[in-house]
Structure formats: C-alpha cells, structure tokens
Design a protein around this nucleic acid. Structure first.
Lengths: 214, 214
DNA sequence: GGCCCCGTCAGCCGATCGGTTGATGCGCGA
DNA sequence: TCGCGCATCAACCGATCGGCTGACGGGGCC
C-alpha cells in the first residue's frame, strides 16, 4: 500500500490517564513499525511538559484526563508554543461541545476510539504532516454545525447551568452570581430555548448528556 | 519473576466496543506470554455467543458497550450457563451502582482501566482460578457498602427518576406510570432523601453523576 | 402473628417556578 | 453610526413544586 521509500518513523507522545489503555495503545502503535512512541503522559500537565521536552511530531491526546487540566486545555497549551507538535485527539465521545472545544484549542484531528486501528495509524501519519483527520461521525457533526449553527449556550448561561445542576433555586443562583433573580429567570428562559426543554430538570439532563458541565 | 514451571496459557475472550481499545488490549495481553486471547467481541451479544462457542477460561468485559445489552447483562448471561467462564470486569468507572450490579450479575473480579498493566495480567490469572480480584478503590467501596448499606433508590423510584430526567412534571409522570400525582410526590420525597438533594434538578444531576440512568 | 419495606393515595399550605412584556447599557462589527 | 447579541433588571400571573401528616394493602421475614 505504502509507496513512500523508507519512511522515517513518526515521533509520537501518548497521553491518556488510564494506565491500561495507555499501555494498550503503546503495544498497538509499536506494532505499526513506522511509529515511534517517544513518551507517555498520564495527565494534561505531564503531556504539556513532555511535549516541550521531547519535541514529538504528534501528540495523541485523550480529552478526559481525570484530575488536573483536561485534554482541551492541554491541547491549547501544547499548540500555543512556536514549532509545536500537532495534536491528534483520540477520545470516546463525539458530542458537539467536545469537538468544538478541541478544534478551537488547536487540535489537528479528532478520532474516536471506536475507529479501526488502521485508521489510527493512518491518522498519526496524516497529523505528522499537519493534515486534518476526522472520524466520519465527527466530520458529519462538523459539517452540520457549519450548515446550521446550533444555538450554543453562552459562557454566562453555562455558569447558570452549573448552579442549576447543584439544585439551587433562582434566588440562590442570583446570590451566587451576584445578579438579580429576574436576570436568572431571563437566562433560564434562553437556556430552555437553546436546549429544547422547558423545565430545570430537563435542562440539567440535556446539559449532562451533551457534556456541557464539568 | 515467574517461578511456576511452564504454566499453560490462560484462554481469554476480550469484550470492548471500542476497536482501538480492543486492539490495544490484544497487543498488550499478547506481550504477557502466558495469556492466549482466543477471541474478541465488540458487543455484549457477540460476547455471549463467543463465550459459549470458544469456551474461554476468562472473559475480560467492559461495562459500557454502546448499543445492545450492556456489560452487566452480558455478564449475567455468560455466567448463567453451567461450566461458564469467569468474567473479569475491566472498566473506567467505580461508582457504587456499577460495582453492585456487576457483582450481582456474577462477575468474578472488577478492575479499573486506571490500574497498572501488571495488575491486569495478574488479575486474569487469578480470575482463571476463580479467585476474586478488586481494584483498591473498588474494594474500598465494597467494604464501605458492607459497613453502611447506602440507601439505594428502588426500581420504582428509578423509573420516576427516568421520567424526571425527561423534564416531565408531576402530572405527566403520573400519567406515564399510571399512578396518581400524590404517589409521584411521595416517591420524589424519598428520592430526594436518598440522593441528598431537595429539588428535581439536583436529583437529575446526582442521578446522572452516579450513573443511575440509562 | 407482628414487623417492616414498598407502593399506593389524600389534602393542605406556602414557596417557587415558568412565561410574558418591556426596558437599559455595553461592546463589537458592518 | 447603526444594528445586533449579550447581560442586566422589573413587575405580574397562574401553575407547579416541596413539605407535611396521615392512611391502606401486600409481601417477605422472624
């Protein structure tokens, strides 16, 4: 299949907080031959540090990283540096919020763990050359997003949502955010509209589903 | 390290819906030497079928399996047969609900993906001999559960919770479940008590957090 | 038989929520 | 400069919620 004459291995850094998954990825990628894993990170902070120190060509990044900074923030910091490596996101979820945030943070590609391993190998090479790679479901969502800009909650509205998920009443939310109760109600109305619900319980459910919280 | 005289490999079946993770596990387990992966399944149904056909000693089972039956149900069906293989759960979450359900379904062990790979190898061998293996955090939760039986929502209360997460009002929930509005309110009161909240939004948030829904 | 959990239902109350209309000020891009 | 999105606030209303007390029947367990 590969017509390139003796390709030099891609230098890769793997970041995933689950040791078993990380070890599995290492074993899998090692079998590819033309990929050299130069380091592994179990947290976002570690990934940022190793990316700067080891200068890999590509960073394979999970978005869910347990404690500390998440994969989006790690991606942002890694790609901020001049001559930074390309970040290829490899994660489980394909929600609009995750995709949008990852791309906004400077990710070169977005692959799902449900993808076939061969696709992963190909994606690593594409990412090394700065080419964008998207899993089909992810690509579909990106296209849909372009066609019909889905109404995303604003930053402020997300703050309201976070308080809502604590089970707070309007008065308590108002006090927590230093605004009036009337303002909280206004925000809630818009949140209901954007999420397609008409109760606070429904809003919390949809927000959790779309991973808009935490 | 290993002082056993020529141990025969453990016959293992791997079940995980994410192809990349599954391939990673295969590559990782192959490196162990004394483990032979005799099959892989991408769904619960496939796992049940292969467990019966391939007669492995151990099934490595993820609990989250996307569409179809989940890992708990698959575990239940696999362990139901006479002379069934031991099921070793390997998953991401260590919530009380997941652990309780998996053990109730007949799982021999419960390991977290955050565990070190060596622990996984050891756990597979332990499971092959029917010995129980629990990740430390899981063991802690099991012990805590034994000491202070946490108030779990009843089946009926979970049904109410599911309707709640749809954003339905009390009247709608009542109609959906063919009971009176008064009964819904009674259930809600008990749900609030068990989840440590006092609003429906808070109940939905906690329920989603503890993975009591879907 | 007694006990306890579960599920069912009633009525009452004050507090809160959801919907509406309308208004102000700010920053930003055309 | 004009418009537009965003955040802020006000007042009002009916509908709903949450908390309370009390009750009844069924099923499992000792």
């Amino acid at each position: 299949m590969n017509t390139d004459p003796v390709p030099s291995p891609v230098r890769l850094l793997v970041c995933d907080d689950h040791a078993v998954v990380r070890a599995g990825l290492l074993a899998l990628l090692a079998s590819a031959g033309d990929i050299e894993v130069v380091g592994e990170a179990s947290s976002g902070e570690e990934a940022v540090e190793l990316a700067a120190r080891l200068a890999p060509q590509v960073v394979l990044m999970d978005l869910q990283l347990g404690d500390g900074i998440d994969g989006v923030e790690a991606t942002r910091r890694i790609t901020a540096a001049p001559g930074a490596p390309h970040v290829l996101v490899l994660t489980t979820y394909d929600t609009d919020a995750d995709i949008t945030r990852a791309i906004g943070a400077g990710a070169t590609g977005y692959l799902l763990k449900a993808e076939r391993p061969e696709e992963l190998f190909a994606a690593v090479h594409s990412a090394a050359q700065g080419r964008t790679v998207l899993s089909p479901p992810v690509a579909s969502r990106v296209m849909a997003q372009m066609r019909a800009p889905a109404p995303q909650p604003t930053e402020r509205e997300l703050e309201i949502l976070a308080q809502l998920a604590q089970g707070l009443g309007n008065r308590e939310i108002a006090r927590a955010l230093f605004i009036s109760e009337a303002t909280v109600k206004t925000h809630l109305g818009r949140i209901y509209e954007k999420l397609g619900v008409d109760t606070r319980a429904g809003a919390v459910a949809v927000a959790k589903e779309r991973r808009l919280l935490r």
